[in-house]
Nucleic acid binder design. Structure first.
Lengths: 361, 361
DNA sequence: CTGTTAGCGCCTTCAT
DNA sequence: ATGAAGGCGCTAACAG
């Protein structure tokens, strides 16, 4: 079927080892035979067999990326970035979807090391620390977005405390005093950290924390819907909601639509992690950008670094943070003052009470 | 590092070949030793090395999926489906992103066969037919979503002629006579087929085709924005737009927002391929569903079939179609009659002229 | 600088 | 039913 190193060697009338040396470019051959071999190999259409090479070298030129899903916009761009970066370096990406499920994660991890991956970037569930720790002895690992507290792996995190702080402060500066927070599960790094940033901003502003305004839940739209309903049903509903649980955003939007709540006139909305359509949505949705692209790039950098410095395991393990940025668009408005006239139009409509009372659906 | 077959054999005091036979379950060993070997292997934590096995058998337990990007919602679900299906069967998915670029596609393809993938599902650009044809001799290939006309590979397509027809007819039935079409490049299967479906529906309804209403372009939001502007700038603008180019949708929405055009009051909008947020968007966007999930499942089925029936290359090559479905939501309205009162509310606003004239941005 | 010799871990004839 | 031996394609000592 395909032409092997032996074929090339025979065609060039040299031994396989010479051919191997010439083609891998170890510089251990005379320039003449080197070039000759390269030429012949090309003529014959020789392609080295990574499987055979891998058996010998223990490497596979395969790097795995393990994420929870592809619905989350951040994971999408991470996958694209990682794949692009790796391909440029001659690696293939093995994309795995773990569903944020410890069992699946565990299974996937073993399959991956079976395949002798050369490196792994993983968004850990946090429940397989022991396994990860073991694997880390054999293969360079970088944790992304979430930390696995049971390990001491190199980790690239978003600066969620800062991001949540920035977002909350923004809302406070706009005059909001009652700010609803819909945030991720508190057994995840990001969930905890975003809550802490929110709390800090509140404290600095001298606003008392009100736990009826805080909802933590799973990373699904339903969380957003349920939480939003509860928030809006309060006797004193919030004038702004900070949706710091990315996947919950759709649920929140559905509820505001169902109840005919105008954004930002009736309610200010600030979300976390950018998505393409946030910018095209009307009104354009203000967000805290977690820097998915930079996170992925940094993770690749760190992984490559560890792959180069092969062997020396936990030496110099570090935790990195990629700063968050506030991107102001049109979904948050100043309160305490009359609603500002929208720039390009004057479509003033419906209720303008500072916060919508619970309305029948 | 890891325990090999030899280790297991030694521990069991048998030869490696016996161990191999017992563990691969060829049934060529006595039940007793068989079970004993399995037990010992488990105790030792033995994991077969796919690399070594692959070198011998020529297989890798790797199946590749080559798509254009992960931004497109259909590709997202396809990736998730393919990965899930394959994992259940002990395969790993190699996800590659080709960017709809022939050069990248070509590079990727060679890398993939180097890695001795056991199968390939590819959304072809259409420009590498010769290469695909060659590869198909070595590895089972299924084309997805697009056909490569230069090959005779098994192909799983959406029923785009039908989908576009259904969508267009729906708009016609609502009374629309001037229906704008924003569609994909005409050098792609889907681009051509969706146009043809649109044309057929028009013809059946006795509506003359008007080429000023038809815009074909690249699969990017900008296409939607540019095309929408041109359509709305016409002296007789359309009363409905059928965005049969998935990625163009965001661009269209931006333009309608910029110009303060209310949907569906001022303009009916029908899109192609579902996305999670279409359903949550306000108004919920009616769509023609291409059946991404079923497409992926069928592609996997066909691929597995060919992988089983190894060898017999082009025998029984077939083209499959997965039917499209119209999903009516709230972005299209009846014309010729007064705008129907929206169900839950009465937020009547702004211009209600049948179609918005070009407005300054 | 080059050729010879060993394997990497596994499967598979071929004997027994 | 089991062992022994050879080889998949390649790299990495060893010699010369």
């Amino acid at each position: 079927m395909s032409v092997t190193l032996k074929d090339v060697a025979q065609a060039a009338r040299v031994s396989v080892s010479t051919a191997s040396r010439a083609l891998t470019g170890t510089g251990l051959t005379s320039d003449r035979t080197q070039q000759r071999l390269v030429r012949i190999a090309r003529e014959l259409g020789y392609r080295p067999n990574p499987i055979a090479r891998g058996l010998k070298t223990g490497q596979s030129r395969l790097v795995a990326l393990l994420v929870h899903n592809l619905t989350n916009a951040s994971f999408q761009v991470m996958a694209e970035v990682v794949q692009a970066r790796l391909k440029a370096l001659g690696y293939q990406m093995l994309l795995c979807i773990g569903g944020d499920d410890p069992q699946q994660e565990s299974d996937t991890l073993t399959t991956l090391v079976d395949h002798r991956i050369d490196g792994l970037i993983v968004v850990p569930t946090g429940k397989n620390g022991a396994q990860l720790k073991t694997l880390a002895k054999d293969v360079p690992i970088v944790c992304l977005v979430r930390r696995d507290d049971a390990t001491d792996l190199e980790t690239v995190l978003a600066d969620d405390p800062q991001g949540a702080y920035l977002g909350t402060r923004h809302l406070i500066e706009l005059g909001h005093k009652r700010i609803g927070l819909i945030v991720g599960r508190q057994d995840t790094t990001s969930g905890r950290e975003r809550l802490s940033g929110y709390v800090r901003a509140l404290r600095e502003a001298g606003i008392a924390r009100d736990d009826t305004l805080i909802h933590a839940g799973h990373y699904v739209p339903e969380t957003g819907a349920t939480s939003a309903r509860k928030l809006l049903d309060l006797s004193r509903p919030p004038s702004a909601i900070f949706v710091a649980n990315h996947e919950a955003t759709l649920g929140v939007l559905r509820v505001t639509a169902e109840r005919n709540i105008a954004i930002p006139d009736d309610l200010s909305l600030l979300c976390y992690e950018d998505m393409p359509w946030f910018e095209w949505h009307r009104p354009a949705i203000s967000i805290v950008d977690n820097g998915a692209r930079d996170l992925a790039n940094l993770a690749v950098d760190r992984l490559l670094h560890r792959m180069d410095a092969k062997g020396n395991g936990s030496e110099g393990v570090r935790e990195y943070r990629v700063g968050a940025r506030l991107i102001k668009r049109d979904s948050c408005r100043q309160v305490d003052t009359p609603a500002p006239a929208r720039s390009t139009k004057s479509k003033s409509s419906s209720s303008k009470t500072s916060a919508a009372k619970s309305a029948k659906v």
